[in-house]
Deep mutational scan, measured.
Amino acid sequence: VTVHVDGVEYDFDNPEEALKFAKKVAEDKNGTYEVHGNQIRVT
């Protein structure tokens, strides 16, 4: 699973970890996250 944040890609073997990371980053920057299959984009 790849999490995209501001043009940087973070790869996770564990989808739950990826989702947790995306949620935290989105909260920290008052943004949102979208899941597209095995890609998660934080905006």
Rank of each mutant, 00 (worst) to 15 (best):
E17L: 08
G37H: 06
N14R: 07
E27Y: 11
N38P: 05
L19T: 04
N38I: 05
P15D: 09
V25Y: 08
V1S: 06
N30D: 10
V35S: 05
F21K: 03
G7N: 08
V1E: 01
V3D: 01
Y33R: 01
N38A: 07
D28W: 11
E9Q: 14
K23S: 09
E16C: 12
E27Q: 12
E9S: 14
F12D: 00
N14D: 15
V42L: 05
H4I: 15
I40R: 00
G31Q: 05
F12K: 00
V35C: 12
E34K: 05
K20T: 07
V25Q: 11
D11F: 15
R41W: 15
F21V: 04
K29D: 07
E34T: 09
N38Q: 08
E27L: 13
E17G: 04
D11L: 15
I40C: 04
V5M: 06
G37V: 05
T43Y: 13
V1H: 09
I40S: 01
A18H: 01
T2K: 11
A18M: 00
R41Y: 15
D13C: 14
G7V: 02
T2V: 12
V5Y: 09
A22M: 02
F21T: 03
N14L: 07
D6P: 01
V5I: 11
L19S: 03
Y33K: 02
F12M: 02
A22T: 02
R41S: 10
H4E: 10
V8C: 12
P15K: 13
H36V: 14
T32A: 12
N14W: 05
A22N: 01
D11Y: 15
D13K: 11
A18I: 00
V3M: 01
V35F: 07
F12E: 00
A22W: 01
E16D: 12
A26S: 09
E17W: 05
A26M: 05
F21I: 03
T43I: 15
E34M: 07
T32Q: 12
K29W: 15
D28T: 11
H4G: 03
E27T: 11
Y10P: 00
V8P: 00
E17D: 14
G31D: 04
H36I: 15
V35M: 08
E9F: 12
Y10L: 04
T43F: 13
V1T: 11
N14F: 06
R41N: 11
E34D: 06
I40Y: 02
F21L: 04
K24Q: 13
T32R: 13
D6H: 08
I40G: 01
K23Q: 14
E34R: 05
G7T: 04
L19P: 03
T43L: 14
V35T: 07
E34Y: 09
L19C: 09
D28H: 10
Q39E: 12
F21C: 10
F12I: 01
V5L: 08
Q39W: 08
K29H: 15
R41L: 14
D11I: 15
A22E: 02
I40A: 00
D11W: 15
